[in-house]
Design a protein around this nucleic acid. Structure first.
Length: 718
DNA sequence: AAGCAATAG
DNA sequence: GGTTCTATTGCTT
């Protein structure tokens, strides 16, 4: 009978059975999951808007790691061999994506933007974020008029307009918030995304991909079972990977219902108590794991793969290369690396046993310090440390065949004092934000217009971008007079931080920083689109050249007007960041527009290197950096966005073509130089990032060392 | 603390 | 059951 142990000890699963009926304590959370659309490809299209109209693939080594939707329509898929992709789609435009710098930087800007509205943000890879919006919903639910509330976006297996919002008010509010955050990502960073709204991370993640791209979906609690059983097998459950799925198969568990119904003791035998319970709960759609706030990364690593490295010399030079990049990153980070790890992959001929092996060692204090102070001066000592690790792994007497090397700094210790406020973790990658998205026709009822008065300083995207924008102009546009007039006229004038600041409408989306408790009477609707229409070019901010403005297509004009209208409500700060919000955006749009019109791009059309994909043997790392037809470039240069030969003025950034620079009017040159010189002091936002909520729930006490200080450094430039 | 396995994007 | 280039967590020693 029932005298078994397993029957009596707890009531774990039965708790789940209770909440099928709708509201129980367990679905109390509102969790959002954001997933950037084809992320790397999107970043590349932002860097070069001309790519938007073409099928685009991002290449790492010999595979296409991701591609845009145009390419997908033509049959290209993720992780496809370059050769296959080109067969399918001969017109595929390919950009190299081995250097992750710009993807990483933009990724942190995304997290940072989300965090500015809600501190509970957890990163998952570079392109996904969870947000626990429970508290935001609670705060908002009081003063929202239920009769005007409705779902934004899709509701899984339901007609969104037919769902009873009274019954699902919190979820509906979650969908409103998700759409506002997505709109913020779009208007501030130019990125489109999908979002899922549900009661926990598992469900939010699973639901977010149901309508793609650039759409969002909410999951009603009563649809949970349907969602789960729609998965083709246990392996599709996030958290159950290949190995676990294989083991389950061996147990005869091949479907979600099977996993739900599997005898617990059997799972426990295979996986242990904790894992067994966890995966079975997952099968029911239960996931108690908290949204754990993101911090700076816990390790920094750099790696390269190759066909073959078999001499110590090659190893050493590859290691040196990796360490140079890595120490630079480490220096910007500002934390002290306390351990160093080497990992490698060997090709054992007999059994293609692809596994990574590693050795690590502590880093002497003086060496670690030198990494931070001297940067690459520390490289030689690090190289010799790594080589010692290498000899621990490989008996060179035998001969060896490596296919990958990785070096990693871990055990990162916060530099206690706020003293060395290492500047800009993010050196801003060229940013062209806010494009009118081509495929964005989801009904975005409440806040569709590009207003969302985001009344906080979006540091990453706004401050200091002036310069990058100028830089962009220098890089991507011909020296035609048509351009120099708008750019210089709009960029030249320098002081006007106040213009529109007067009355920005109250945002339904309040950034967490200023926490305004003022009664907002009119939150939801308020903003008729007519406001936009009423603005004529006579309303242009003073620094915008009306003639240039009129040249732009109407939809871009509109977009810009909207941004003029909403930007700038930066309250107390804007130190020297003169009117950057306006000018930056304006400049961007003009530039993007010109590019889209096929203005010849400095001869360097990064568009036509579809060949050269396969001819390199992928042997020793380099060689393949032949990107824009300008010979070799280092990874860093590539990430900085197509530099040219280095000559010229010491203060001219490396990513600016000195020739082009020299042809600019002298006054513009002077201004740029001045700008570049005091770039660092210029950025700064003393925002106080949530310290109170550092420990959110049962989770972890926030990142190690928990210096909100260091976290800030990580996210903010300055 | 070290090394690895598993998971994920 | 691998392609890339990361990054995290948890188990085992």
């Amino acid at each position: 009978m029932d005298t078994d142990e397993e029957g009596e000890n707890d009531c774990d699963i039965s708790a789940d059975l209770l909440d099928v009926s709708g509201c129980s304590a367990a679905d109390h959370r509102v969790v959002l999951h954001f997933d950037l659309d084809c992320y790397y490809a999107q970043v590349e299209m932002i860097r070069n808007p001309a790519l938007r109209t073409k099928p685009l693939g991002v290449q790492q080594k010999y595979i296409i790691v991701t591609c845009n939707y145009l390419a997908r329509e033509l049959g290209v898929t993720k992780l496809m061999l370059v050769k296959d992709a080109l067969e399918k789609c001969p017109n595929l435009v390919i950009v190299k994506g081995e250097d992750l710098t710009c993807y990483r930087e933009m990724s942190y800007q995304v997290t940072e933007l989300l965090m500015s509205y809600c501190h509970l943000v957890e990163r998952l890879g570079f392109d996904e974020n969870f947000v626990d919006a429970t508290e935001m919903v609670e705060n908002r639910i009081k003063d929202t008029d239920m009769s005007s509330l409705s779902f934004v976006g899709h509701v899984y297996k339901h007609d969104a307009s037919a769902v009873d919002v009274q019954e699902h008010a919190r979820l509906a509010l979650g969908s409103v918030i998700a759409s506002e955050l997505r709109e913020a990502l779009h208007s501030k960073l130019g990125l489109t995304s999908c979002a899922g709204i549900a009661s926990n991370k598992l469900l939010a993640k699973l639901i977010s991909g149901t309508f793609k791209p650039n759409q969002q979906t909410a999951l009603l609690p009563q649809s949970t079972a349907e969602l789960m059983s729609s998965l083709s097998g246990p392996g599709k459950v996030p958290g159950i990977g290949y190995r676990t799925a294989e083991k389950l198969k061996a147990l005869g568990v091949m479907s979600i219902p099977a996993l739900q119904g599997a005898p617990l003791h059997q799972l426990v035998r295979e996986f242990g108590d904790a894992t067994a319970k966890r995966i079975q709960s997952l099968a029911y759609g239960t996931d108690p794991s908290p949204v754990t706030p993101a911090g700076p990364p816990q390790s920094l690593s750099d790696e390269d793969s190759f066909r073959k490295i078999s001499t110590v010399m090659e190893v050493e030079s590859k290691v040196r290369e990796l360490l140079s990049c890595l120490t630079e990153r480490m220096q910007k980070d500002g934390r002290l690396p306390q351990t160093l790890r080497l990992t490698l992959r060997r090709s054992t001929a007999v059994n293609r046993w692809f596994c990574r092996e590693s050795r690590q060692c502590p880093i002497p204090h003086h060496t670690a310090r030198r990494v931070l102070t001297g940067g690459t001066e520390a490289v030689p000592e690090l190289v010799s440390m790594v080589m010692r690790l290498f000899h621990r792994l490989v008996d060179v007497g035998e001969g060896f065949h490596l296919t990958l090397l990785n070096v990693c700094f871990t055990n990162l210790q916060n530099k206690s004092t706020g003293r060395n406020a290492i500047s800009s973790y993010f050196t801003h990658t060229p940013l062209r934000a806010a494009h009118t998205s081509t495929q964005a026709q989801e009904t975005v009822g409440a806040v569709s217009t590009p207003d969302t008065p985001l009344s906080h300083t979006q540091t990453g995207a706004m401050c200091g971008v002036n310069n990058t924008q100028i830089t962009e102009l220098l890089q991507h546009t011909p020296l035609s007079s048509s351009l120099s007039s708008p750019s210089s006229s709009s960029l030249r004038q320098t002081s006007l931080s106040q213009a529109v600041q007067a009355e920005s409408p109250v945002s339904p989306l309040q950034p967490v920083l200023e926490h305004s408790d003022e009664k907002r009477v009119d939150t939801g609707d308020s903003r008729p689109a007519s406001v936009l229409e009423k603005r004529k070019s006579s309303d242009l901010p003073p620094h915008i050249d009306p003639d240039v403005f009129r040249e732009l297509p109407e939809h871009i004009q509109k977009e810009l007007l909207a941004s003029f209208w909403t930007a700038g409500s930066v309250p107390g700060d804007s130190t020297g960041a003169q009117g950057s919000a306006y000018t930056q955006h304006f400049t961007e749009r003009v530039t993007a527009h010109l590019n889209q019109q096929g203005v010849s791009q400095c001869g360097e059309s990064s568009v036509s290197h579809t060949d050269m994909a396969h001819n390199d043997d992928f042997s020793t790392g380099h060689a393949q950096n032949e990107l824009c037809g300008e010979g070799q470039r280092s990874k860093e240069e590539l990430s900085a966005g197509c530099p040219v030969t280095q000559v010229g003025h010491p203060d001219v950034p490396t990513n600016v073509d000195p020739r082009i620079f020299s042809e600019l009017p002298p006054d513009v040159q002077a201004e740029l130089l001045a700008d570049w010189k005091q770039r660092k002091p210029m950025l700064k936002v003393p925002s106080k990032l949530a310290s109170k909520h550092a420990v959110a729930r049962g989770g972890r006490p926030a990142p190690k060392g928990s210096q909100s200080n260091s976290l800030l450094k990580y996210f903010k430039p300055s």
